[in-house]
Design a protein around this nucleic acid. Structure first.
Length: 620
DNA sequence: CTAGGGTTAG
């Protein structure tokens, strides 16, 4: 009662309350006549009618009720009023702001509500401004303030501000709050400061599922895929049993990047066990995972079973098929999509054109390129031009590809020149190749692959001085080639091999195996292709180098450690050399194994001495 | 007295 009286006084002296419900405010002498329970009853009524609101109309009525009974001056009622308006799906932040301005002394709760509302509406700067306002007015933030504020900071990628806020959190002693910590992990993760995420994560004395989720997502956004899987394992062993959807999606995504099919399947199983119906996003990420892990049949059957597909699901399936050299099937899916009435967008066309280029479907590619603009009004972007250069280049139409680049409406980028350069390498056109390479080197390319392509072409024609010239240039610019590696999954563990890797613990076994394999291969007619070695050294040395290529080590290890006849899956970070390609074809024949190799760009399915790419990529 | 963290695909 006393509090209400104080508030009434407030009302009378506040100048800005033009919504003041004067007639209801009880003058002191009548005050006794209104029984206490009556006001409390009204308060209850108003709050429950607020809760029942389903749209703005009903909300305005509830608002009117609150004003009518003078309950707006009850800070609890006003808070709920603002919160309902700011946070409901049907609400309006503009209206909430106008209510907020009428509150004569907004406190922490009301400020928190406004911040959450702005975050919900994706007005992140606005949320930060509310926080600034709050500090200016001397309202102390509490542990509920920071999750919303840090979320805004994370989405704005505002690292500096985020760190200042972290400082304030420490000053206020709120760094022990689980929610605040989780938000900090997320903030640093989004800002790609994974070390800082770890600092928070490791100092937590209690972790929730969301803490794990946040740290796994942080690693995912920095592309640290194998770390994601390790953390996932740690999480399970710390007793967080069957995990939830968002974590599993990150795990599935990590599996796609790493080519870890077994683990991906486990995550799929876990999703099926724990989530009653998988949404489009989850299903699409599963399709993507199966496709990128080489299990294209599973990806396709999953896709066929999907009840509601969208452009993104089609896109995942189309580019998956393209990657596996099944261009025709990809194009069939595309026509299915059009028949379903889904509008093709720019990204779908990237998939479609790359399907054509992966399979050498030149005429179809040109047709789609024409059609996308004329029939569907999709303006070709540089990516589409990139696909076309790739398509023409791989088919050996180097002059046409070069002409297309010259006539592009935009400035050609590195990707375009790189496609042309690699086509020139394949078709051994040093002249156009040098032009493309010069463009790349002038653009200050930091991609060591460009220099490598050029070196190959020089090495091929015996221009060793030029090879070493390129190498010097690489060194001068301080560019280092990422070491090539191949990984294989054996009993749910990923083993990674680097070229010439002698530090491997079972190296002896592998090196014996390599010799045995080579002996058998030679028996069948394999001849090492030493032109793939970019060093001007003796033939013997070149052969020794070839033997040590990471893919051969990985296959040797897999042959030693998996049962007879079981398929082998290899994932590489770079494209394979043509010697490894030939070698693997022989292995698939002699050891009667199906071998799937995921390259930087696509899959190669080796079986009975042939490869699904029909050697289209390796014409050297 | 109320409330909060992650949101993934091509």
């Amino acid at each position: 009662m006393i509090r209400r009286q104080v508030q009434h006084t407030n009302v009378l002296i506040t100048p800005r309350d033009h919504l003041q419900p004067t007639q209801v405010l009880i003058p002191p002498r009548n005050h006794q006549q209104i029984p206490e329970f009556n006001l409390q009853l009204k308060e209850q009524e108003c709050l429950s009618s607020l809760k029942r609101c389903k749209n703005m109309e009903e909300f305005k009525q509830a608002h009117a009720q609150i004003l009518k009974w003078g309950l707006f001056w009850n800070s609890f009622c006003a808070s709920n009023l603002v919160a309902t308006c700011a946070l409901s799906v049907w609400g309006s932040m503009a209206y909430a702001c106008s209510i907020f301005c009428q509150i004569c002394e907004p406190g922490t709760f009301q400020f928190n509500t406004m911040m959450r509302g702005h975050v919900k509406d994706m007005n992140y700067e606005e949320a930060v401004l509310v926080y600034a306002d709050m500090l200016e007015r001397g309202i102390e933030p509490d542990n509920f303030t920071f999750p919303a504020l840090l979320k805004a900071g994370a989405l704005l990628r505002a690292l500096d501000e985020g760190m200042q806020i972290h400082g304030q959190i420490l000053k206020l002693g709120l760094h022990d709050d689980l929610y605040v910590q989780n938000s900090l992990i997320n903030l640093y993760g989004k800002c790609k400061k994974i070390e800082l995420s770890y600092v928070v994560f490791e100092t937590m004395d209690q972790k929730s599922v969301s803490s794990w989720s946040a740290i796994i997502a942080a690693n995912a956004s920095s592309g640290l895929w194998s770390k994601c899987l390790t953390l996932f394992g740690d999480m399970i062993s710390e007793g967080f049993g069957e995990p939830e959807e968002s974590i599993l999606v990150n795990v599935v995504c990590a599996c796609a990047h790493l080519g870890a099919l077994q683990l991906g399947k486990c995550a799929h199983g876990s999703l099926l066990r724990n989530i009653s119906s998988l949404n489009v996003i989850v299903q699409t990420s599963l399709i993507n995972m199966y496709a990128k892990c080489g299990a294209i049949q599973e990806a396709v059957s999953l896709f066929k079973k999907m009840p509601d597909k969208n452009q993104l699901s089609y896109s995942a399936a189309i580019s998956g098929l393209a990657m596996h050299g099944q261009g025709r099937e990809a194009l069939k899916l595309f026509s299915d999509m059009l028949r379903e009435g889904l509008e093709p967008d720019a990204v779908i066309y990237v998939g479609v054109l790359s399907a054509c280029s992966h399979c050498g479907l030149v005429d179809e590619g040109l047709q789609f390129f024409e059609q996308m603009k004329s029939e569907y009004g999709v303006e070709p972007t540089i990516q589409h031009y990139g696909c076309m250069v790739d398509l023409l280049g791989r088919a050996g139409l180097l002059i046409e590809a070069y002409d297309l680049i010259k006539n592009m409406p935009m400035k050609p980028n590195d990707v375009v020149w790189r496609s042309l350069l690699s086509a020139c390498k394949v078709h051994q056109n040093l002249e156009i190749g040098e032009t493309a390479a010069n463009e790349l080197l002038q653009s200050n390319s930091k991609n060591p692959g460009d220099y490598l392509l050029l070196s190959y072409m020089y090495a091929r024609t015996g221009r060793w001085e030029d090879v070493s010239q390129v190498r010097t240039e690489l060194a001068d610019k301080g560019i280092s080639q990422a070491p090539g590696f191949s990984s294989v999954e054996v009993q749910r563990k990923i083993y990674r091999f680097f070229s010439q890797d002698v530090k491997w613990p079972h190296h002896d076994g592998i090196s014996d195996m390599i010799h045995q394999m080579e002996w058998q291969l030679k028996f069948e007619g394999y001849v090492p292709d030493t032109s793939q070695v970019l060093l001007n050294v003796q033939e013997d040395e070149k052969r020794q180098r070839l033997r040590g290529h990471s893919q051969k080590l990985a296959i040797a290890f897999a042959l030693l450690n998996t049962s007879r006849g079981s398929p082998i899956r290899v994932t590489r970070n770079l494209r394979m050399c043509s010697d490894c390609h030939t070698y693997t074809k022989y292995i698939s024949l002699i050891y009667e194994r199906e071998i799937t190799v995921r390259d930087r760009n696509r899959f190669h399915h080796f079986r009975d001495g042939t490869c699904s790419c029909n050697d289209f990529w390796l014409l050297t």
